Amino acid sequence: MSVGEAVETEPRRRPGRALSFGLIVTAVLLLLFGVPWWTLVWSGNRWPTAVFAAGTVVSAALAAAFPVLMFSGHGRQHRDGPARVADTLLGIVWVLFVWSILGNLLRLALTLAGVEDPVRSRVVTAVVALVALVLLLWGYAEAMRVPRVRQVDVLLPRLGSGLDGLRVVLLTDTHYGPINRAKWSRGVTEVVNSLDADVVAHTGDIADGEVAQRREQAAPLGDIRAKLARVYVTGNHEYFSGAQRWVEHMAALGWEALHNRHLVVSRNGSDLIVAGVDDRTAAGSGVPGHHMDHAAALRGTDENLPVLLLAHQPQQITGAVAHGVDLQISGHTHGGQIWPFHYLVRLDQPVLQGLSRHGERTQLYTSRGTGFWGPPFRVFAPSEITLLVLRSR
Rank of each mutant, 00 (worst) to 15 (best):
L364V: 15
D117I: 01
I101L: 15
A109Q: 12
A132C: 10
A218Y: 02
V264Q: 05
D208Y: 01
A65F: 02
R150T: 14
S356Q: 14
A83S: 02
R84G: 04
T333S: 03
L298A: 12
D153V: 10
E238D: 07
G222H: 12
G204S: 02
T362L: 13
R181F: 04
G160T: 13
A283I: 08
R145C: 01
V131W: 11
E360G: 12
H74S: 03
D223R: 14
T362H: 13
L23I: 15
H312V: 00
F240M: 06
V131Y: 10
V134H: 01
V98F: 12
G162R: 11
A201S: 06
V68D: 00
F71A: 07
R357I: 11
S367H: 01
H262N: 15
T386S: 13
G300P: 14
D279G: 03
A6N: 12
Y343Q: 05
S59T: 15
D117N: 12
T189C: 13
P11E: 08
T362S: 15
L166G: 11
L310M: 08
W255Y: 05
E248Q: 15
V345E: 00
G16Y: 08
G209A: 02
V146Y: 08
M292K: 02
R280Y: 09
L221S: 03
D80P: 01
D117M: 02
R46A: 15
D196G: 08
R225G: 06
A65K: 05
V146K: 07
G242S: 05
F372S: 00
